[in-house]
């Protein structure tokens, strides 16, 4: 025990171990830099919901299984309950609050409303983030691809059929005229 503590003290002194107290970090969230103090053990989900007040990101299982806490790190959809805030570094974080502008909704959000892909709504922000990420890399996903993209999400109300329907409708919508 004493040896461990001595080793830990040495490691802290040498800069090998951060914390356990508060550390200053900068998170780039939805296009803005935020300075905040977090403990090393603080997850990204906790940092977003707590000090940053971005409560659209939900914590349901807190062990990386249900995907309710899905946000984007750069273009990658991740479970923010399983990422430490201090390891995000300079990657861009996009949360449900930053997915669309103030005026307009993201097409996935529109489609969720149109197809009632929502019940209690607690898992919905995470599902929207995964579906929007899918659409960004694959504008015309088929049923299998949609089901795979949301396979990590748990929804106890059972919105999966309407989520799939909403995404299929988006995938077959007319493309905007690029000319």
């Amino acid at each position: 025990m004493a040896n461990e503590r001595r080793n830990e003290d040495k490691a802290v002194a040498a800069g090998h171990i951060a914390g356990p107290g508060l550390l200053p970090i900068v998170l780039q969230v939805n296009g803005e830099d935020h300075d905040l103090m977090v403990e090393p053990r603080t997850t990204l989900a906790e940092a977003l919901r707590g000090p940053l007040g971005l409560t659209g990101t939900k914590i349901a299982c807190n062990h990386g299984v249900c995907s309710a806490c899905t946000v984007w790190l750069d273009d990658l959809a991740v479970a923010s309950c399983s990422v430490l805030a201090i390891e995000v570094g300079e990657r861009r974080i996009t949360t449900i609050e930053g997915l669309a502008g103030q005026e307009h909704l993201h097409p996935v959000q529109e489609a969720f409303i149109a197809h009632d892909a929502i019940q209690c709504g607690f898992c919905t922000p995470g599902l929207v983030m995964s579906c929007a990420a899918l659409l960004a890399r694959n504008p015309h996903p088929d049923r299998k691809e949609i089901e795979t993209a949301i396979s990590g999400h748990l929804c106890r109300c059972g919105t999966y059929p309407h989520v799939v329907q909403a995404m299929l409708a988006l995938g077959t919508r007319e493309e905007p005229d690029l000319e």
């Binding site: 409560t55 659209g56 949360t95 609050e97 669309a100 969720f112 409303i113 009632d116 709504g121």
Partner: peptide, 23 residues
């Protein structure tokens, strides 16, 4: 008729306030 869910916009944008969000 299939009126859109009254709180759909709040739920898809993350604005909906759940008890766990009350501070």
């Amino acid at each position: 008729k299939n009126a859109p869910r009254w709180d759909a916009r709040a739920k898809v944008t993350g604005a909906a306030r759940y008890t766990v969000d009350v501070a």
